[in-house]
């Protein structure tokens, strides 16, 4: 039996805008096990970004229980949330979010600075990660000197450098063409085969199919399900 690393019970997220309360997530239940490659599939406005923010500890639910690596994420202040993110979550964004004025190596080093890793070890680990994503020769390049696919691979190296519990990818191929997108997916498979847990949020069924398990989200409701081709 595999270990559960993430459990969500009755997660509700509401936003208050003026007098109106909009319920973005409605009683979401979700369990993710160690080593899983999960895709959360849903159209825009379905609440999938909100769900991702909660999974990524960027936000806390209005009600419900969220447990990550055995720790209950509730009533945490910003500082502890930051520490949890630093240790547990590796973010991959649609638009890469690399710092333009820093080299690939420096970008990969960034999460380790906030995890208080010593400078020498930072450099070594960052280089290892860049080698892993096949960009060792680009480590002194700046983001604007690299292609989109290369930038996303730098971002992936950055996401895994702190050895997080979950790799959380938000539309990771959204800004890439099909070919480079496929390369990124290949890299995901590779990382998953090494036992890394990946949660990928996407609206694209074809991308979601790369995952070993898919859950659909629609209007804030989650449904476990096999994908039927639309």
């Amino acid at each position: 039996m595999k270990k559960e690393i993430l459990t969500m019970k009755n997660i509700v997220k509401e936003y208050v805008m003026g007098d109106e309360v909009s319920r973005v997530l409605k009683n979401v239940d979700l369990t993710v096990e160690e080593g899983e490659f999960l895709a959360i599939l849903g159209p825009s406005g379905s609440g999938k970004s909100t769900l991702m923010n909660i999974i990524g500890c960027l936000d806390v639910p209005t009600s419900g229980e969220y447990t990550l690596s055995g720790r209950l994420i509730a009533n945490q202040d910003e500082k502890s949330l930051a520490q949890i993110r630093s240790k547990e979550i590796g973010f991959i964004f649609q638009s890469f979010h690399l710092l333009q004025r820093q080299t690939a190596l420096e970008n990969v080093e960034l999460p380790m600075i906030y995890a208080n890793v010593k400078e020498k070890e930072r450099k070594e680990r960052a280089m290892q990660m860049l080698e892993k994503v096949g960009l060792k020769d680009k480590m002194d390049h700046y983001p604007n000197q690299m292609s989109g696919g290369q930038q996303q691979r730098v971002a992936i190296a950055r996401a895994i450098v702190n050895n997080p519990t979950i790799l959380l990818a938000d539309e990771p191929t959204g800004a890439l063409d099909q070919k480079t997108g496929a390369q990124v997916m290949e890299l995901f498979h590779e990382l998953n085969n090494e036992g890394r847990c990946i949660i990928m949020i996407t609206h694209d069924v074809n991308i979601a199919k790369h995952a070993s398990r898919i859950v659909r989200i629609l209007d804030g409701n989650i449904s476990e399900g096999v994908v039927e081709d639309a």
């Binding site: 520490q83 973010f91 979010h97 960034l110 999460p111 906030y114």
Partner: peptide, 16 residues
């Protein structure tokens, strides 16, 4: 702003 958001996502505490 975006850079600050990213740093926070990567684990930067508000103090830092």
């Amino acid at each position: 702003t975006k850079e600050i958001g990213l740093r926070k996502a990567l684990g930067a505490e508000p103090m830092k």
